[in-house]
């Protein structure tokens, strides 16, 4: 494991954040910053792709909780994709599948945004 990185790309009006490395209490502020940038730019349709994330703790999940309300108030959503079983288990233990839509693939999440 080597640090944490957020790569950002845009598909039409949807922002896709690709997370890489480990997301813990030390690196969570980086994700906070990336999401805050989206909010500041009024980008409220966001997909988080977890394909290259090797580790997450509750500090990482807390970041999503901190932003979701504001994002949904603006008619947007945070959707998740490409979680490996290790990452999914943490989300599952904390009941996140009831609060967020989780897709196997980034394309499915994009389709969901575009179908609205």
């Amino acid at each position: 494991m080597d640090g944490f990185e957020v790569q950002r790309k845009i598909s039409n009006d949807v922002v896709i954040l690709n997370l890489k490395g480990y997301l813990d209490a030390h690196t969570a502020p980086q994700l906070e910053k990336a999401l805050q940038t989206c909010i500041d730019q009024k980008e409220y349709k966001i997909i988080i792709n977890f394909e290259n994330l090797s580790y997450i703790s509750s500090a990482g999940l807390g970041v999503f909780m901190g932003f979701i309300e504001e994002i949904r108030q603006h008619g947007g959503d945070l959707k998740f994709s490409n979680m490996n079983p290790k990452i999914f288990r943490v989300f599952d233990l904390l009941g996140f599948p009831n609060l967020f839509e989780i897709f196997d693939d980034e394309r499915d999440a994009l389709n969901k945004f575009n179908s609205k």
């Binding site: 703790s57 509750s58 500090a59 999940l61 807390g62 970041v63 909780m65 901190g66 979701i68 309300e69 943490v90 233990l93 904390l94 609060l99």
Partner: peptide
């Protein structure tokens, strides 16, 4: 979620 509280989930985990 409603209170936008972050943290506090650690012990539960």
């Amino acid at each position: 979620l409603a209170e936008m509280r972050v943290g506090g989930l650690g012990i539960y985990l």
